[in-house]
Design a protein around this nucleic acid. Structure first.
Lengths: 346, 346
DNA sequence: CATATAAAATTAAACGTTTATATTTTGAGT
DNA sequence: ACTCAAAATATAAACGTTTAATTTTATATG
């Protein structure tokens, strides 16, 4: 093969001008069907493929979707449940048959993520941005809104203007979990959360308080923990809380990595699941069925929200109004035990 | 802010031509230090940033590193230990302060991965390619070698010509594990492997056989299993093998997801780790310390090989000979128990 | 101080595409 | 057949960069 074919090659081949070829390839109404077919035919025969840098230079379109991932340090690679893999994987699947690609921009902190976003927006380095780890009052969101730059968030925010987002319905999850545990007789329910500044953590707390108050139960802030959702964190919290005068009889974990840590803590402390306390989690990898013992979870296959993330991004670039691109997924409750325990001591 | 500054802006600002500006920015020896400083100064003041599509169009350089990931289907998202996240994360870290970006190309099968690689190579859509899941006789590798396209593999191959690679020393791992188990008195040692066509699976089997034969033990092929390394697969294998007339007393798992599945099988079958059999695994997330019970593993933090992957890619693009870009990492054995069990029945 | 030479700068073209503007072709209406 | 508007196509410039070829400037040499 000599040179990679360009629209020039097609022009020469068909006897048309490059302008017409370009228009034909872009399905412009200015070119009549007959010539369009001729061009398409030639393009196919020559094995023509659009050179994106040409387009990019001329129009500014990049066909890149920037995915911002925040990973503090190598040791942050410690398993924290669903990683960005599954997220990116779902997005990739959604854009599979388009010319778009996912480009990962990894940063070490929230502040860095803001810097990177500024650069991407100002230098038009991507056609759209996807972020996760949204905060209650997220400056990145207001920035992108001001600059009128397309973005979708994985996670909600409390931004005044509406924006495209996908998330798990965390309020719902927590409500379901707390109500279930209350109905089983639990009165000391711990909740192990992600970092406090994340919007979804706030949502979970609100739902937790609301469910308790609806049942006439008092709220004890010492039963709430905040941190990075790793097994280590779960275990630490179990160690700490199980020493309380009135220890929790149930632990609601924000992900399965943390739940695994809590169970590991059980084993170290000689506690038994279902006798001394129970653990229930939010799960998007469906892995807690393999825990020893398996635990009850609110399960939402990560593939669903992540594919939607990609789809929303395409729609947004296509000009759709963000207000129509908002979705909360409701997980299924999968019971894997009675989740009662020796509650008579209360 | 008016327009994004280009070299033209700098040229106007400094009174030089765009050619000189370009050369100055690229540290060409054709421009004298004094003017270079002037240009750099102006660039800084103007907040100039290189427009990659311009470069790309002119030179063909893309500043993209293509990472090919094979994910068969959404349900493939099931946890299979270390995902691509950690891999991409390490690569990203290695190229952090360069203009390079990682672009993920997700495909559904091995064959598709080959197709994508062909397109990337032929249309020069990236400056280099990183692949994993290398096979014993991998056609993708020979293709990229023929086309003289820069690539690094995560995993070894048996290609005749040398190529850049990073991998865990799987022979070593298996040798260590088998010898350890033999010395503890185990005679029926099962090994749960990844798919048979993967080169590292072959390496593991060779090492397994060699270690047995060195100890004068016979090799029983029914103790070997091949499949996708998920918890489900591990559990299935435990169910199957534990029904043998002479069941294994030890299971060597190729990753921790599978090990978790085996342990889950123990619990279902009423078996007890350390009494009826033991499990040891290869681990790159350091998560098996949180299993109930924690198990002995060969641990290698995934951050190490993945960063090397990125570094090798840069070196390769920089013109380094692939023969100098090959590395096998040797994991640490972390003992988390005696790993003996009731062996008198043998 | 003229001259040869080396060093430093400039000019101009090119990469592949799109698009505003100009030109030609087509076909309908008389 | 002729006119004229509409439709289809062509021309040419531009996006930001690099680089071969060329010109200008500085430096060394006798």
């Amino acid at each position: 093969m000599a040179q990679r074919p360009t629209i020039k090659t097609i022009a020469k081949e068909t006897g048309l001008s490059t302008a017409t070829v370009s228009k034909a390839l872009n399905a412009s109404p200015q070119v009549r069907p007959r010539t369009r077919d001729k061009v398409l035919q030639a393009a196919k025969e020559l094995g023509y493929e659009l050179n994106i840098s040409g387009v990019q230079l001329r129009t500014g379109k990049t066909y890149q979707i920037a995915m911002i991932t925040v990973i503090a340090s190598p040791d942050d690679d410690e398993w924290a449940g669903v990683g960005y893999t599954q997220l990116i994987s779902g997005i990739s699947r959604a854009i599979e048959h388009t010319p778009y690609r996912v480009v990962q921009h990894q940063v070490a902190s929230f502040d860095d993520s803001f810097e990177v976003i500024k650069r991407i927006v100002q230098n038009k380095k991507a056609d759209g941005i996807i972020i996760s780890g949204t905060r209650a009052n997220d400056p990145r969101i207001s920035f992108m809104q001001e600059q009128d730059f397309p973005f979708v968030t994985y996670g909600t925010s409390d931004a005044s203007a509406p924006h495209a987002f996908v998330d798990t319905d965390n309020r719902r999850i927590v409500t379901i979990c707390v109500e279930r545990l209350l109905s089983k007789g639990h009165r000391r329910i711990a909740m192990i959360n992600a970092r406090e500044e994340l919007n979804y953590t706030q949502n979970r707390i609100e739902a937790y308080k609301a469910a308790l108050s609806k049942a006439g139960q008092t709220f004890d802030p010492s039963l709430l923990a905040y941190g990075r959702l790793t097994p280590a964190f779960g275990r630490e919290q179990l160690f700490e809380m199980s020493m309380f005068d009135e220890p929790p009889t149930a632990y609601i974990c924000a992900n399965e990595a943390t739940a695994m840590g809590v169970l590991s803590g059980f084993q170290v402390r000689g506690m038994e699941h279902g006798r001394d306390a129970v653990v229930i989690a939010t799960d998007d990898l469906n892995v807690s069925q393999y825990f020893s013992p398996p635990i009850t979870t609110c399960y939402l296959p990560i593939s669903k929200p992540s594919e939607t993330l990609g789809k929303f991004m395409l729609d947004l670039i296509g000009g759709e109004d963000p207000i129509n691109l908002q979705k909360l997924f409701v997980p299924d409750l999968i019971e894997r035990g009675a989740d009662t325990c020796n509650l008579e001591r209360q």
